[in-house]
């Protein structure tokens, strides 16, 4: 069952790296009491809506919903609040670690 998530991107969309593991905040869009719950995850994302197992919707900094559907693969859930400042406009590229 494909789950649906969304994320906020503050940089230009063209600058978002695909297929690179990043740390970012996503929100769970599953209907019910926990809809919009936030989560820190390590993930891969793609503009190809079918590339990864879950659907990702993309919003810009003031909440504007973009019209293209992306896809996402969560590689790890991150417990707690990451102490290293993460880059909210596009996620932290973990390859730099």
């Amino acid at each position: 069952m494909r789950k649906e998530w969304d994320t906020y991107i503050l940089t230009k969309l063209a600058e978002v790296e695909e297929d690179v593991e990043t740390l970012r905040v996503i929100r769970d869009l599953t209907p019910g009491t926990h809809k919009y719950r936030g989560k820190f995850v390590k993930c891969l994302i793609s503009r190809d809506p079918d590339k990864y197992p879950d659907t990702l919707r993309v919003r810009l900094g003031r909440g504007q919903l973009t019209n293209k559907i992306w896809s996402i693969k969560i590689t790890a859930e991150v417990e707690g609040i990451p102490t290293k400042p993460y880059h909210m406009s596009g996620g932290i590229s973990l390859k730099e670690d």
């Binding site: 906020y8 929100r27 809809k35 919009y36 936030g38 919003r59 003031r62 909440g63 504007q64 919903l65």
Partner: peptide, 10 residues
């Protein structure tokens, strides 16, 4: 509540 559409959360 989700007060406004597009809000960053509830």
């Amino acid at each position: 509540p989700m007060v406004h559409g597009g809000d960053g959360g509830r």
